[in-house]
Design a protein around this nucleic acid. Structure first.
Lengths: 210, 210
DNA sequence: TTTACTTTCAAACAAGTGTTTGATATGTTG
DNA sequence: CAACATATCAAACACTTGTTTGAAAGTAAA
């Protein structure tokens, strides 16, 4: 029917809507985003969302995409380096994904926004993105601290790392007021990532040797 | 006029509204909270908010109160103990304030909610609560790491500590799904606080000696 | 009690939300 | 071309939001 090579006008509209949705959702959150604003940016009629995706919820489900987050993990797993180095790499990539405007990873910033404010899609996000991410980090931390550290303790270390990372994202409005000169340019992000890695690795190595 | 000993009915209404507002704001955030729900819990008419406080914004400003957070800091400052111990104490008290349902410190949980989602009152919150808190922690961390560590680095350590703490609060919906058995009872909170203190102090001491 | 002021209340208002509708255009197929 | 399904559109719908209104109830002083 429409399985031809050329792209239907309808398909273009869908694509524009999904892209605009990612923009607006990541800027305003699910509740704050309005269908009208999404359609305005997608240059589409207000009814388009419901026609193509059934509802605002349907559009959110479609807009969610964790490919970049997954790619980050598989790339890290195949990296031939010591776990300490791989943790450094992960934190750096993760922070760039979260904070760098130019990284065009709005899908994952959407996800980050939902953490604090449950939406109809939170279950999907947890199952498909956060749980695997958590398990990935758990394995990485385990490689670093060794077998003497209990599983609960190991999990809490993962949360300590994730907590540090997401704080810079979630609390940006506050940090901007607290330190007006703060800009998330590439150098600053890398410096922050290095600090988090230093801070966390120091703690992890003490746990391994303690 | 109304400076007598007995409490006016009007004053009671105001007080009920403020208390209900703290409840609802801390549960739903400023945007999510509705004037009608607040008035329902306060057993007051919908118009009461605008009559007594001018607007929803005015009620928020009135409901904000940082006494407990300030008390926590002054108590910590007067404690006669080494800075490492005082950091442990602070993290414990702070986590109890954030996570313990029974601690009745909704005012500060309101504050925590706003961090991610700027409201008309964010400036006031930052100036009156977060900036002093940040400075307090900065001094405490400085006492621990000594003078060899740069100021930027010291500040980032503060953010690492705050990030770990607030993560357990902000991401509760996610953590609940990730670890269904998780309950924020008093023992669990204290265990979490101890982990954060251990993790952070290990990192800080490495910085001091490195 | 009468008077003036404060507080409460049900109802309505104006603006914004996601969604639906029915007509109109568009493209595909016989 | 004609017939049909698809896609777009302006308009309206149903609902929720914070806020306003004008009357009723309550309160305190003269």
């Amino acid at each position: 029917m429409m399985t031809e090579a050329h792209v239907t006008a309808s398909e273009q509209t869908r694509a524009r809507l999904v892209e605009a949705a990612r923009e607006v959702f990541s800027e305003c959150g699910f509740q704050g985003a309005t269908v009208r604003e999404i359609c305005r940016r997608a240059d589409a009629n207000v009814a388009a969302v419901n026609y193509h995706f059934g509802s605002k919820d349907g559009l959110l489900a479609e807009a969610l995409n964790f490919n970049q987050l997954k790619a980050l993990q598989t790339a890290n797993l195949t990296a031939d380096a010591r776990p300490e180095i791989r943790l450094r790499l992960f934190i750096r990539d993760f922070m760039l994904m979260l904070l760098d405007e130019k990284s065009a990873s709005r899908q994952c910033r959407m996800m980050a926004r939902e953490l604090a404010d449950p939406t109809p899609a939170l279950d999907k996000i947890v199952i498909e993105a956060i749980a695997p991410l958590h398990e990935f980090l758990d394995r990485l931390v385990r490689e670093i601290v060794g077998d003497k550290v209990g599983e609960t303790e190991c999990q809490r270390c993962v949360l300590s790392i994730l907590g540090q990372c997401s704080f810079y994202y979630h609390s940006e409005p506050v940090l901007q007021r607290l330190m007006p000169e703060l800009r998330y340019d590439r150098d600053e992000i890398e410096a922050i990532a290095q600090h988090i890695a230093d801070f966390s690795l120091a703690a992890l190595l003490v746990k391994r040797n303690g």
